[in-house]
Amino acid sequence: MNQLAHLRELLAARQERRSPLDSVGTEPDYRFSLANERTYLAWVRTALALLAGGVAVVQLVPNFWVDWARELLGVILVVLATAIAATSYARWQRRERAMRVGGPLPASLLPWVTGVGLAVVSLLALAFILIDIARGEG
């Protein structure tokens, strides 16, 4: 009996997770929803800027001595950008949902991933430039 009640609770919780956004909890303060929307837009612009950086490094930057350097930098940037863009809707929705039910905002690995990704790209670019300088081509 106890187990049945527990199962029912689990099912109800699952139902709640699945239900469309506007049927969960109560409408949050519009300022919070708009702040969530602007944060989402800032992530989309970050993705677009990384994408532009990736395209520019492949298409516009002169070749390095390491001849796959531009492709490597470009692909890392474009992958990072695509990952941010592809997860941006879910991130926005999770936060809107948390606001509606009054729970804590969910944690996200994305700031860490973005920071590490950019650090890797910067260090690689520095290494490629130093190699060019060392060979007298810089």
Binding site: L21, D22, E27, P28, Y30, S33, L34, E37, Y40, L41, V44, A47, L48, L51, G54, V55, V75, V78, V79, A81, T82, A85, A86, S88, Y89, W92, Q93, E96
Partner: peptide
Amino acid sequence: SPVDHRLVAAASAAATAVGLSAL
């Protein structure tokens, strides 16, 4: 509530499509 999910979903989809096709 001023929320509009379809617009958010559409902007995400467009950015993802541009990224994937460039990749």
